[in-house]
Design a protein around this nucleic acid. Structure first.
Lengths: 228, 228
DNA sequence: CGCTGCGTTGAGCTTCTTCAACGATCGTGG
DNA sequence: CCACGATCGTTGAAGAAGCTCAACGCAGCG
C-alpha cells in the first residue's frame, strides 16, 4: 500500500491531490502483472474502469478482419489508459496488450467517479489528459491521411529524438514490426523506407539505433513540422 | 439573452444544470454569425475558449502542405467544438470553417473553467463529451488505416442511414467533395467508388440522394460492423 | 448569359501491399 | 553449451489501390 501511494504521487493525472486523496485512490486500486505478449483487455470487453501503467510498456491497438494491426497508443510508466471507457460507460473500443512484462493498476469506474466528483482538481487533470489524447489522435489522423510513409517515419524519428533529449542517435522503444504498425504500414515497407532514407543520407541505421544525420531534411520530409 | 439560455438548455453538454447556471453560461457566451465558407479559426490560432454550434454546419479539418484536406469532424446545432483547447491551453490543432451560414457561441476559457470547477455535473458532461470524441477518432483512425475506400464509404452510408432514422434512402449532408475529404480520399475516387457500388447493386444514386439496396452486403464491405 | 465550382470519366503512374525466400537473432530445451 | 525453432528483419518481384492530370458536362448564381 505504501508503495502504491508513493507511485501514485508520481502520476501526472493525480498531481495536486492531498495525501488523504492518494489514500482513497490506493483504496480502490488493484494491481496486476502481465507478461510480455499477454492481453490486458480486448476490444468489446466491458469497460468498468481504467488503468495506469506502473512499469513496462502497453500498446493499445485495433485489428482488421484480415489481421492487420494499427497501434493507437504506446503507454509507459505513469500513463493512464482506457480512461474514456469510464465516461462513455460502454465497452473498450480497442485491444490492450503488454509489450514487455508490465505492472498495471486498475481503477474501477464507480469508485473513481465518486472521487472525481469530489475533487475538481482531479476532474481538471482528467479533462487535460483526455484533451491531450484528442490532440495526439488528431495528429495521427493527419499523418495517416495526409502524409506518405517516409513523412510519417521522419516525423516519428524527430519525435523520438525529442523524447530522448534531442539525441542525434535514437533507440527504437519497440520492434520495427511494432513501429510499422504504429506508423500505419507493414514491416516490409518500413524496412524499405529506412533503407531509402539511409541511402539518401538522412539517417544511418544500426539495428534498433538510428542516427539522424540531417534533421532539416527530415523535417522537410515530415511536412515542415515546426522547429523547436 | 432569453433566446440564448433557451437554446443552451437543449445542448447535451449543458444538460442537468440549474436555471441559475444557464444564466451564468449565457453571461460569458458571445455569439457570432459566420457565412458559408468563412473560417472560424485557423490551425495554430490561440485557443482561448471553445464553441457551440447554434445553427448551421461547421467542419473541423486539417490541411497538408499540398493542399489536401482531411475533415476531422462535422458539427451541427447543439454540438460543442474545440473544447480540448480549453484544457490543453494551447493553440487549435486544426482549422474550423462554416459549410453553411451558421451561428456559433463562444465560451471564453477562464470563465468556463470557473464554472466547471463549481459544477461537477458540468465536468462530468464535459468528460463524457471528450470521451465520445476519442471514440469517434479511434474509429476514424481504424477506417483510414485498416479499411479501403469502399469499406469506409459503405460504413459511412450505413452511419448516415442510422442518423436519418434508418431510412433506405439517405441524403448526403455535405457535397461529395466534402464527403471525399471526410473519408480520407479525393472526389475522383469517391465518384468511381459510388459508381462501382451502384453497378454491383449495393446502392442506387441520384445526385445527393443514395438508396441502400443491400444493407447486409454494405455491412460486409464495411468490415462486418455490428448489426443493430 | 457567362462564369465558376462541382461532379464525372479516362489514362497513366506512384505508392504501397502481397507473396515469397532467406539470413540473423534470440530464447529454450536437450 | 550447443542446437534448434520461432520470430524478426530484409530483399525481390509482381500486383492492386488510389492518386494525378486532363477534359468535359452540368448547375447555380451573379
Amino acid at each position: 500500500m505504501m508503495k502504491i501511494t508513493g507511485f501514485l504521487a508520481t502520476v501526472p493525472l493525480f498531481s495536486g491531490l492531498t495525501p488523504a486523496q492518494y489514500d482513497e485512490l490506493a483504496m480502490i486500486a488493484t494491481a496486476q502483472t502481465v507478461k510480455k505478449g499477454q492481453p490486458i483487455f480486448a476490444e468489446g470487453d466491458q469497460g468498468n474502469g481504467f488503468y495506469v501503467v506502473g512499469s513496462g510498456l502497453v500498446k493499445i491497438y485495433k485489428l482488421s478482419l484480415e489481421g492487420k494491426e494499427q497501434i493507437l497508443h504506446l503507454f509507459g510508466p505513469g500513463e493512464p489508459f482506457a480512461e474514456a471507457a469510464v465516461f462513455t460507460g460502454s465497452s473498450f473500443p480497442a485491444h490492450a496488450m503488454a509489450l514487455e512484462e508490465s505492472r498495471v493498476f486498475f481503477f474501477p469506474r464507480q469508485a473513481f467517479i465518486e472521487l472525481i466528483r469530489q475533487n475538481p482538481d482531479l476532474a481538471m487533470n482528467m479533462m487535460a489528459a483526455l484533451s491531450m489524447r484528442l490532440k495526439k489522435f488528431a495528429h495521427l489522423i493527419e499523418d495517416l491521411s495526409l502524409k506518405e510513409v517516409p513523412g510519417r517515419l521522419a516525423a516519428h524519428l524527430l519525435f523520438l529524438s525529442g523524447q530522448q533529449g534531442d539525441a542525434d542517435t535514437v533507440a527504437l522503444p519497440v520492434s520495427k514490426t511494432q513501429l510499422a504498425s504504429l506508423l500505419g504500414t507493414i514491416p516490409e515497407t518500413l524496412s524499405r523506407m529506412l533503407a531509402k532514407l539511409a541511402k539518401q543520407g538522412y539517417i544511418a541505421t544500426s539495428g534498433p539505433r538510428i542516427t539522424l544525420l540531417d534533421r532539416d531534411g527530415l523535417s522537410d520530409l515530415a511536412g515542415g513540422e515546426k522547429r523547436l
